[in-house]
């Protein structure tokens, strides 16, 4: 566990819990980061507000990596535009691509996401695309230059947990990049399960923002993610299926 690092495009992280910063007050961010043990925090890009002089950057502790997303983008071109603006804001090359062309379920558009990934990777961004867990898309994202793949567990903000579990497992098994489960994780136990499956990290926002005690829930998530990771690294134990040993009915033909 000590040398176990999450590596994204050559950048090393100890924490495997990525924190969202949406839907809660800026004043809670510092505590959330602290209790979550987070080293990466996401944020969005919006039209600047002239009235409010509070800026999220003033609330994020030093040393935490900022992961701007492209929320609001409805196609690849808009995502690229938002990503470029985010980089101009001067907090590094990380970008989480989020492209929705559906306002009801907010499901990501995989095809446009591949297109945006390709453009931004060529421009030197560290691209972390949020996607619907589809193996062919994941392979396209790898070829397009993605740094990670971020499949959704269930619709964003739903807190419904690992509805796409089997398909995320396929990505974990087949894709050589870190698979970061993003969206829909509503409880620490679900985060833990994703980590036990072999996910490289878990990202959560709404589960914390809507919790009774945000910092306490952030800590619960941190522990769950660590426990799941440790279980994965330890190799889960066997389940006893039956007591009796089988007879050699299948292999009885072997001669030596």
């Amino acid at each position: 566990m000590e040398n176990d690092k999450l590596v994204i495009a050559g950048h090393e992280f100890t924490s495997r819990f990525i924190l969202g910063s949406g839907k809660y007050s800026l004043s809670l961010i510092e505590a959330a980061v602290k209790y979550a043990g987070a080293e990466i925090i996401t944020c969005a890009v919006r039209r600047a507000n002239t009235k409010e002089h509070e800026n999220i950057l003033d609330f994020i502790p030093k040393g935490v990596t900022l992961l701007p997303n492209t929320s609001g983008a409805r196609n690849a071109d808009e995502a690229v535009r938002i990503a470029r603006l985010a980089r101009e804001l001067g907090c590094g090359d990380f970008v989480k691509i989020e492209i929705m062309r559906d306002t009801k379920y907010l499901l990501p558009d995989n095809a446009e996401t591949v297109r945006a990934t390709e453009i931004l990777a060529k421009e030197g961004f560290i691209v972390m695309p949020y996607m619907y867990p589809d193996l062919n898309t994941a392979r396209d994202l790898v070829n397009a230059g993605a740094a990670t793949v971020m499949p959704l567990a269930s619709p964003i903000g739903s807190n419904k947990g690992l509805a796409t579990k089997d398909f995320i497992q396929i990505l974990i098994d087949e894709i050589d990049l870190p698979i970061i489960v993003d969206a829909g994780i509503g409880r620490p136990s679900q985060a833990c399960e994703a980590m036990e499956m072999g996910a490289a990290a878990v990202m959560s926002n709404t589960a914390l923002a809507t919790a009774g005690d945000l910092p306490a829930m952030a800590e619960a998530f941190r522990k769950a993610v660590e426990a799941g990771r440790q279980a994965y690294l330890s190799g889960l134990g066997r389940v006893l299926v039956r007591g009796a040993a089988p007879s050699d009915t299948l292999t009885g033909f072997l001669r030596d």
Partner: peptide, 15 residues
């Protein structure tokens, strides 16, 4: 134990 664990997994790793 390593063998038993492997036999129960759906997707086997290189290990």
């Amino acid at each position: 134990n390593d063998v038993m664990r492997a036999l129960q997994k759906q997707n086997l790793s290189v290990e």
